[in-house]
Design a binder for these strands. Structure first.
Lengths: 218, 218
DNA sequence: TTTTGATGTATCATGCATCAAAATTGTTGA
DNA sequence: TCAACAATTTTGATGCATGATACATCAAAA
């Protein structure tokens, strides 16, 4: 494992585990132990406890029983609920971004989409997924809604392990609606941005629910 | 202080501090220390650390610098953003609840509103506020959206200290739109439920923003 | 099938080193 | 002499490590 340089050990460990969750290094249903993490990171259990408490708080980890800490498996119902919530939240963010977007904001969005397309073309799916997330988060930033951004982060963290597995299997397009959203930002058309965002979120829905079904088979 | 009986000490302390935040026992900008909490609760610092990590994670507390832990003050911008988010989220919950509400669900809602009105009539504002929150959360439960309920809890926790102060000063009606929402649940009219919820959230908005202004004066 | 024991892990208490801010002291200029 | 400011000490709280205790879990024995 690499070094942990950050504000505090606890925060560093939180960031590390979060990334592992999104990158797919930690699989759903995988069991973790505080001592195990502490040993593998070369620290004691205390800062790991801090990080785990935070991760438990946003349901990025779950403790099924007292000494059973693991990566939660997202049920179909949970995924659909998150999708419904994201539709509202990210629709609001997209509408807000379209209302206030400056030229530099649009330029940033275009840059992110470009890097997404490049990563997809090169088959670098983890990077493509990261750019996809960056695009969605950027809209909340442009809209000037940090609290919304925080809520979104937590939702994406919960779907992270699932999504990474899905796009690793089926290499789907992620940027189709992104161009529409950018156009809506340029023309300050909030309604169009909201509609495009809704479409973007709902597009992979059926595919992912089917993917969840296949996971539940084994 | 009372006893702490729960799953674990950390959870108990989290619940305790959350309640103090919502009940207004902890004022905005009030400084806290881990050791102080531990002493006043009769525990050591470790479980308090756990609770504080969780509270920091959902921004119910903030650490302005390394050794400066305090109750955050909600700016006008933050309050307005939370209101906008709640409009979307609770609108979704109300619509979902209206779609699937059974007789027993409607009965529960009516019971909550009744207790709210009784508390208001008796001048028991903390209880009235609690019933108001209970009503909003109940809709998410009826809609079968636990994840949305979790997101909502965090948002309410952030506005808690402010709201308790506001309603302690200006004793306003809280149930006006609640009756409309209940009617919408009875007739399974999702659109009406959503609209009534939106009105319910936006009604006190201007009063609260003014209240924030007065707080910033001193 | 029930009981018992071993093993591993979590929760919590405690102690120490560190570090930041407050308090105190010392210094300088008018 | 006094006020203002800089340097230094003191206070106090955190981050982290470590150790004690208790509790699940699982397997072996009764």
């Amino acid at each position: 494992m690499k070094e942990l340089n950050k504000d505090s050990l606890g925060h560093a460990i939180y960031g590390r585990v979060s990334q592992d969750l999104i990158r797919g290094k930690l699989q759903p249903n995988q069991k973790l132990t505080i001592r195990g993490l502490a040993d593998s990171l070369g620290t004691s259990s205390t800062p790991v406890r801090d990080a785990v408490q935070r991760l438990l708080q946003d349901n990025a980890l779950e403790q099924r029983s007292m000494r059973d800490l693991r990566v939660p498996v997202l049920t179909t119902a949970a995924y659909l609920e998150i999708t419904a919530i994201r539709t509202e939240l990210e629709g609001l963010a997209a509408a807000g971004a379209a209302a206030v977007a400056q030229d530099k904001d649009v330029a940033m969005l275009k840059r992110i989409v470009l890097r997404n397309e490049e990563a997809s073309a090169a088959g670098k799916w983890p990077l493509a997924i990261e750019m996809n997330q960056k695009f969605h988060f950027a809209l909340a930033e442009i809209a000037g809604m940090p609290i919304l951004l925080g809520a979104l982060s937590r939702l994406w963290l919960r779907t992270g392990p699932l999504i990474s597995g899905y796009y690793a299997k089926t290499h789907n397009d992620m940027v189709e609606q992104h161009h529409q959203i950018i156009t809506a930002c340029e023309t300050h058309d909030s309604a169009a941005a909201r509609a495009a965002m809704r479409a973007d979120i709902e597009k992979p829905r059926d595919g992912i629910t089917q993917y969840i079904q296949t996971l539940e088979q084994n």
